Computed example of a mutant assay.
Amino acid sequence: MSYECSINNSWNEWLAGVIDGDGCLLVSKSGYTSCEITMGLEDEHALAIIKQKLGGSIKLRSGVKALRYRLHNKKGMVELINRINGNIRHTSRIKQLDLICSILKINIKYPSDLTINNGWFSGFFDADGTITYSIKNNHPQLTISVTNKLLVDVVAFKDIFSGNIYYDKGQNGYYKWSIQSRIDI
């Protein structure tokens, strides 16, 4: 595999992770396909890079400190699907991808097993990850975590990076994977 191809594969994996965490693949009542990604204002640069590569638009969401990237032209959607097909992993996003693929007449590809070098982890972390720092017993404590509604959508982090997963009943319930030990981090 060439260096350029490897960079594109990693970027495509990253993009799929971002979409799995903060995006959705939609079909309108008229049958038009689109992709939306909503992220905080601090992630404007990431959305700008996606827009630069695929086209689309970025608009400020009213009432919240967030931006929404939207792609809805057919040519752009075909390129997007060809980039993320085989890299989408989130339970609901795979269903959305399947529907989009059938409309665009593209064969869906299901993801293969993750490895530690897969760019999907960094994209999903960009969307649903957190790094926190606190003091415990007069010692600094760094925590890296990822949260999601479904256990199946965070278990890959535990499988690859160790750590723990617990269920938090707050905010209508979610699963949180985290690492704190120096070795895991």
Rank of each mutant, 00 (worst) to 15 (best):
C35V: 12
E4G: 04
F124D: 07
S102Y: 07
M39C: 04
I37G: 00
L15S: 08
G56A: 06
R83E: 07
L47C: 07
K105C: 07
Y3A: 09
F124G: 04
D20A: 05
V152Y: 02
Y175K: 09
I81K: 06
K169I: 02
A48M: 12
S122R: 12
C5F: 11
L97I: 01
D153F: 02
W11A: 13
H90V: 00
D153N: 14
N138F: 10
D126P: 00
V154L: 03
I103H: 09
G123M: 09
L114A: 02
D20V: 01
S28L: 10
P111A: 04
K105G: 03
I185A: 11
Y32K: 15
F161Q: 03
Q180H: 12
G23N: 07
K105E: 14
I106T: 10
Q96T: 00
S57D: 06
C35N: 01
S162I: 01
K29Q: 13
I81E: 09
G23R: 06
L15H: 09
A127L: 04
N148K: 03
G129S: 06
S178Q: 10
N118L: 05
L47W: 08
G21H: 05
K136C: 05
N8Q: 10
Q96W: 10
K149Q: 12
R70L: 01
D113N: 11
K65E: 14
Y175V: 06
I50Y: 09
Y3I: 07
N85M: 10
L142W: 11
I185S: 12
I19L: 13
C35Y: 01
K176Y: 05
D43S: 14
Y167I: 02
F157K: 03
N118E: 09
S57W: 01
I58K: 01
H139A: 03
K29G: 14
I50R: 08
N87F: 09
L97V: 01
V27W: 05
L25N: 03
D168Q: 11
V152K: 15
W11M: 13
V146R: 05
I185C: 13
R93A: 08
I165M: 06
S178K: 04
D98G: 12
N9G: 02
S28R: 08
N138A: 07
E4M: 08
S62R: 15
D126V: 03
V18D: 08
G163I: 02
N164G: 02
I37Y: 02
K105N: 14
A46F: 09
I19A: 12
M1N: 12
S10K: 14
N9I: 02
K29E: 15
D184H: 10
L47R: 10
V64Y: 14
A156I: 00
T130R: 06
L67I: 03
I131M: 10
I160S: 08
I106N: 13
T115R: 13
A156M: 03
I94W: 12
Y166W: 15
N137I: 00
M77K: 02
Q52D: 14
F157G: 03
N12H: 15
I131Q: 08
S134N: 09
K149P: 01
S181K: 11
G23Q: 07
